[in-house]
Design a protein around this nucleic acid. Sequence first.
DNA 1: AATGGGCCCAACCGCGACTTT
DNA 2: TAAAGTCGCGGTTGGGCCCAT
Length: 286
Amino acid sequence: MVEKPASQANAGGDVEARKERKGLWSPEEDERLYTRITRHGVSTWSSVAQLAGLRRSGKSCRLRWMNYLRPDLKKEPISKREEETIISLQKSLGNRWSVIAGKMPGRTDNEIKNYWNSRIRKRQNISAGGGKGDGELAKQGDLPAADDKANVLAVAGGMEPVSSMATGATAPPVPTRFPLFACQLFGGGGEATAVAAAGTTAESTTTHENNGAGSESDVSVGNGGQDGREGHYYYCAVEGDIDMVHLMSFDDLLEYPAGGDLLMDAWDQNGLYSANTGSSVDSFGC
DNA sequence: AATGGGCCCAACCGCGACTTT
DNA sequence: TAAAGTCGCGGTTGGGCCCAT
């Protein structure tokens, strides 16, 4: 049976409209799923699909969340060091991708599996003489006898998937991840956090916070850039009794529940840190 | 400029394991 | 204990992009 393109899925009336959708996820579906899970969590995946108003299987929702929407995923290409880890773990664990992924924070089993299948395995086969050295791993016809492009694979891994953003005539560019940002403020003996989603639906937000010991502040966080992706900066405007402002990416926020030390490490490493005395607007280039 | 081939990756499929009733 | 439902994993596929010709 041939799948209909997603754009034609509604063409057949009610019965057709109730059919499960397959294929690529639209930005709207992503947002529905993301909002549902971040607000209400997951009871069962099939209920998530239903309650989010998605014509997707629970399985599909789970996959989309685990492999793409989950905010703790790393978006940068797999590094040389990570590649070495993959090779080493694969050697000791075999193709137990979920176990390997579990040892590599921010990476998914699918991502690692794809990386292995498309790059490492191929390279290893080539260096082993172009044969199917490790059993039947190599697919028939997958390895041209002289694939001299193999040596550029590592470079290709560094490419940003920005090409699809430039077009966007019909479908808006899908962000690699919903870019959420936050300010965390320290002052008056307490701390407060404001979070904004920039670039997709909400461009900015303002929160009135009580900073612990009676000190109150208005916090604004937003996307000051062009499209929320490139050449952008994010601003954090505060009014009130604030000693210090930290601008956080959502990645940083995710570390928060795990412990303040991790969060501070992220700030320090990324330089997303600004001492602040009094009311001001701070901009941070990203 | 057109086109064909290769590569990458998102998503689907099938199956086994686990949980609930 | 068995059946049904759900989850999670690994393998595979299909579509889009890029590049060489």
